[in-house]
Computed example of a mutant assay.
Amino acid sequence: MRQSMTGFASTQGQDHGFVWGLEIRGVNGKGLDLRLRLPDWIEGLEVELRKRLSSQLSRGNVQVSLRLNTEGSDGLARLDTGQLESVLTAMAQIETEAMNRGLSLAPSTAADIVGLRGMMTTEAAEIDQTALRASLLTDFDEAVSDFIAMRQSEGQKLAEILNRQLNEVDSLVDKSEELAIARAPQQAEKLRQQLSRVLENADGVDEARLAQELAIIAVKADVTEEIDRLRAHVAASRELLAEAGSIGRKFDFLMQEFNREANTLCSKSGDAELTRLGLSLKTLIDQMREQVQNVE
């Protein structure tokens, strides 16, 4: 099923003397960027979470936050006095250096300091880390399932929007082809006039070069190739939407090809109405590209 890169899931739990809140948030990204904010004293937790996410996601900037606290006041959470001493010493040095340079720093609160990584520790000997980690992983797997379900729901909506936009592209391409066929006699007359002007000034001109110039004039007036390529891109887009797995990068490249053909159609049109259709195509393609940015 098609997936968006946007999603959110959260869960709460408690076990083994702890309570926790877990959140997973995702937005679009060029690759898979996992950012985890976890207690650093639970051995192997971060490695395992990264492994599980990487096995199910291909793209997106994904942030996982785990808030873990002890139940009641059982004293399991400890202030690391050694770490506190190091932090306070560093803060004093920073403030001194800032004053020497004429800089003013905002005051730090106790809450700021205690929230620093490694400031609060837990005595591992008093905790069954294996059991706690297993409980956290169970909740994490449930949250990931909810997260992916939301991405799939968003992805289905994206696919519906893109299919509607592809139908609009098809319609504009059909109108462009009809207009190009209708203006063919007029374009032929323009070409004959241009040919006459070239022949009038062709004395002494190399015949091969003359043939080349005439071919260039004809090509510049013909938009058949652009129309055919636009239709091919529409077909390729529909095939991509039906594929399994990650298609976002391929789709983004295809949008560049769409835009290139629309630009060429406008530059070769030689007709106000055909130019208007080409500009409408460009606007629609830009709208499609905005949607494609969120496709995994």
Rank of each mutant, 00 (worst) to 15 (best):
Q3S: 10
E43Q: 10
S4E: 04
I148G: 07
P39C: 08
S145F: 01
S73K: 14
R2Q: 12
R52N: 09
G102N: 04
I127C: 02
L76H: 01
N263I: 08
S58A: 14
N61W: 01
E85V: 11
A215F: 05
Q93C: 01
T70A: 13
W41L: 04
E48S: 04
E46F: 02
G75C: 11
Q293A: 14
R249V: 12
V223W: 02
L277D: 09
E257C: 06
F140G: 08
G245A: 07
Q256K: 08
V47R: 11
N294V: 00
L136D: 02
I24A: 03
L36T: 11
A98D: 00
S86P: 01
R78E: 13
Q291N: 12
L76S: 08
G115D: 04
D74C: 06
E97F: 00
E160L: 13
Q287G: 11
A134V: 04
G7A: 11
V87Q: 04
L105H: 01
E213T: 07
G248C: 07
S55T: 15
F18H: 09
L34C: 04
G102C: 03
E85F: 03
E85M: 07
E126W: 03
Q156Y: 01
L230H: 11
S237F: 06
L281A: 08
D74Q: 14
V223S: 10
L277H: 14
L38A: 02
F251Y: 13
A180S: 14
L191F: 12
D40P: 14
E126I: 08
L49H: 07
N69D: 15
S267V: 00
E290T: 10
G270Y: 01
P39F: 03
E290D: 14
L179S: 05
L66K: 10
V219T: 14
S10D: 09
Q165P: 08
L240N: 12
M1E: 09
S280M: 11
R183M: 14
A143M: 10
S145G: 03
T138A: 06
E189A: 14
E23L: 00
A9H: 04
R231K: 14
Q194V: 10
M1P: 11
A208E: 15
G82Q: 12
A134E: 15
V198G: 03
N61I: 11
N259T: 07
V295R: 04
F251Q: 12
G118M: 05
L230N: 09
Q193D: 10
D252R: 04
